[in-house]
Design a protein around this nucleic acid. Structure first.
Length: 269
DNA sequence: ATGGTTGCGTAGCAA
C-alpha cells in the first residue's frame, strides 16, 4: 500500500498539477492539506472520474484537508477531538482497506503558530496563534495515544509545521524563534513520537538537506533553502510494515508547483 | 534593512 501526504496549497491552483502527480506517482491513498475550499466547491467528480474515492473536510479560503483513495475507505471522521468550539478544518480520519490488512489513516494540517509573541526575558508566550498550535498539539497527542491503544497499523500523515531538528532546515538560525522550530513546538512533536510512533522518513534516511517545503519567496527553491515539515508517523504495527519512503522533491520543479512536495511511504499491507 | 511570492477572492490576511 502506497500512502502519500501532499500540502497542495489550494485545490483550484493545483487543478492541473495534482492530477498530473497522481497519474505519475500512482499512490493508493493521499492525504491532502490546504485544499482552501469548502466541500461543495471541491472538484470531486474530476477525481472520481479518475478512479478516486473522495472525502473532504473543507473550509472557506483557508485550511481544509481531504483523503483521495483508490482503495475502499471506512469509518471516515472529520475534526480533531477535544474542542467542540474549534472551527478550523485540519483533521480527517479513515480506515483504508488494503489487500492484506486495514490501516487507520489520519490526515492532518497542524497549525503554523506564527506570529509568536515574546516576553522581555525572551520566553515565548503561549497565546494567540502560537497558543492555538500548542493546544492543538496537546489534543493531537491525546488522539494519537488513543489510536495506539487499538494496536493496529496507524499512519498520521500531514503537514506538521514542525522542523524536528536543525538538520531539517537549510538555515536553522533563521528559524530559531519561529513557531515551527521553537523548543516547545519540537518538544510537543517529540511527545507524540515518544508515545510509540516512528517517523517514517528518519527510519530510513539520515543526514541533512532533505526538505519538503521551499518558500515561493527569495529564490528559496533555486538555493535549496528548504525545511522538512511534512511527516508520516507510524504506530508500531505500521512501522513493522514499512518498506520504502520518499520525498518527491522533483514535484517542486514542475509547472505551477505547490510550495510543498509530496512525501510517500510504501507499506507491506 | 527591506523585500522578496503565492493563494483566495477581490482587501488584506495567511503562509
Amino acid at each position: 500500500m502506497k500512502l502519500a501526504t501532499f500540502n497542495i496549497n489550494g485545490i483550484k491552483a493545483r487543478i492541473e498539477a495534482l492530477p498530473r502527480w497522481l497519474e505519475a506517482a500512482r499512490p493508493d491513498v493521499v492525504t491532502l492539506q490546504e485544499i482552501k475550499s469548502v466541500d461543495e466547491a471541491f472538484p470531486r467528480t474530476l477525481f472520481e472520474d479518475m478512479g478516486w474515492r473522495v472525502e473532504t473536510h473543507g473550509q472557506k479560503s483557508f485550511n481544509g484537508v481531504a483523503i483521495l483513495s483508490r482503495l475502499p475507505l471506512e469509518d471516515v471522521t472529520r475534526g480533531l477531538p477535544g474542542d467542540e468550539a474549534d472551527e478550523q478544518a485540519r483533521w480527517i480520519e479513515a480506515t483504508v482497506i488494503g489487500e492484506g490488512r486495514a490501516v487507520r489513516l489520519c490526515g492532518l494540517y497542524l497549525p503554523n503558530g506564527n506570529p509568536v509573541e515574546f516576553e522581555a526575558s525572551g520566553r515565548p508566550i503561549a497565546s494567540g496563534k502560537y497558543g492555538y498550535k500548542l493546544a492543538w498539539m496537546a489534543r493531537m497527542e491525546a488522539r494519537a495515544r488513543a489510536l495506539l491503544a487499538l494496536e493496529e497499523p496507524v499512519v498520521l500523515a500531514g503537514d506538521y509545521n514542525i522542523i524536528p531538528q536543525d538538520e531539517d532546515a537549510a538555515r536553522p538560525e533563521v528559524w530559531r524563534s519561529d513557531a515551527l522550530a521553537l523548543p516547545e513546538s519540537r518538544a510537543a512533536f517529540r511527545r507524540i513520537l515518544h508515545l510509540g510512533y516512528t517517523e517514517a522518513f528518519r527510519a530510513q534516511v539520515q543526514g541533512p538537506r532533505h526538505y519538503s517545503f521551499w518558500d515561493y519567496q527569495a529564490g528559496a527553491w533555486e538555493k535549496n533553502n528548504g525545511i522538512r515539515i511534512d511527516h508520516l508517523l507510524l504506530s508500531p504495527q505500521a512501522a513493522d510494515l514499512l518498506r520504502d519512503v520518499k520525498i518527491d522533491k522533483a514535484a517542486r520543479g514542475e509547472e505551477k508547483p505547490s510550495d510543498h512536495v509530496p512525501v510517500w511511504i510504501e507499506l507491506d499491507a
